[in-house]
Design a protein around this nucleic acid. Structure first.
Length: 324
DNA sequence: CCGGACTCCTGTGCGC
DNA sequence: TGCGCACAGGAGTCCG
């Protein structure tokens, strides 16, 4: 599922191909994947505004990413569009005289030549959790749309995370998935980062020591950088701007590996359900019971943790039992 | 205010 | 072989 590394790699593969190119024509097959800041809905945007918002007759100049969101924009003052890939979204550059890898679920096509099979960019999204939001400018995106997003996870500093975690009792896994606290981490890299930092996913955010927050931040940055270097993680749908799969899947430490041995210690990986997300971790490398740094005041939190773990485990087991 | 639950959607893989 | 169902999850919304 596209998270920060996938979107960053997508940006890097699209920018050299599209920067400086003029969109000749936009073809919209499904209007409901387009959202507008002005009316929220978007199905009622006048067609002319829609085409303008999608950069028709405009030169593409900038690719800006924050968290999992990618902005494709014209020179300053002109429109900008925010692309969100959701679960299964793809942006693929299709060179002239070639066909897209698949023809189904293509919702929008940007044509860069007048000919039908010229250079083009397609937005494909079978599950339609993704979409495109129209904005007036990059400045408007940054001041309005991104105002509620947390710091970009690739460059987070310990201080950013410490201040946001300090006040929350939510499980650390749930907090990492909240884009208002930290932008860019999704289910895959949350699990990977927690394993890399040796933290149990159900630990309350406020129970982390300063040193643990430091470890977590470092783990997030390392995890994301390695994934970007590998071109992202492809589980099923993700492809980059050239239609290529990411190569990070074989490097995953825990995600989608429940029941198999931990690459660090050999213990069988376990799974829980946290914040409605399957969560895989190593019970040995990410212990839930030993918190030497905690004061007596925090022991109440421990009781809560044990209770939560029992609930999360029963939720996971229920899932398993049903499928068996 | 906070945190958890629910919702949208479709391809895949499983059991029967 | 085919039907039906559970499952995957980003992000907005709703509710206790």
């Amino acid at each position: 599922m596209p998270e920060l590394p996938e979107v960053e790699h997508l940006r890097c593969t699209l920018a050299p191909r599209l920067t400086g190119r003029v969109v000749r024509r936009v073809e919209v097959r499904r209007r409901d994947v387009i959202r507008s800041a002005r009316n929220g809905g978007a199905s009622r945007i006048p067609l002319a505004d829609l085409r303008r918002g999608l950069l028709e007759r405009v030169c593409i100049e900038r690719f800006v990413r924050r968290g999992k969101q990618l902005v494709i924009a014209a020179p300053s003052g002109a429109p900008a569009m925010i692309v969100q890939l959701g679960m299964s979204g793809q942006l693929i550059f299709v060179p002239r005289e070639t066909d897209p890898p698949r023809e189904d679920h293509i919702h929008i096509t940007w044509h860069f030549d007048d000919r039908v099979r010229g250079d083009r960019l397609i937005f494909r999204d079978p599950r339609r959790f993704g979409g495109i939001t129209l904005a007036e400018s990059v400045a408007a995106v940054q001041s309005r749309h991104w105002a509620r997003l947390g710091a970009d996870a690739l460059t987070i500093q310990t201080g950013d995370v410490r201040s946001t975690l300090k006040t929350t009792r939510r499980p650390i896994k749930a907090a990492l998935l909240d884009q208002r606290l930290l932008a860019g981490v999704g289910n895959i890299y949350a699990d990977e980062s927690l394993h890399r930092s040796g933290l149990h996913p159900l630990r309350p955010g406020c129970s982390l020591s300063a040193d643990e927050v430091r470890r977590l931040c470092s783990a997030i940055r390392v995890t994301l950088r390695k994934a970007i270097k590998a071109g992202g993680t492809t589980l099923r749908d993700y492809v980059d701007g050239n239609g290529r799969d990411g190569r990070n899947r074989t490097d995953l430490l825990v995600y989608a590996r429940a029941g198999t041995p931990c690459k660090g210690c050999g213990t069988a990986l376990e799974h829980l359900v946290v914040a409605q997300r399957t969560t895989t971790f190593c019970p040995a490398c990410q212990p839930s019971t030993t918190y030497p740094h905690l004061s007596k005041r925090s022991t109440r939190t421990f009781g809560k943790l044990a209770e939560r773990e029992a609930q999360a485990r029963s939720r996971a087991n229920r899932r398993t039992t049903i499928t068996l």
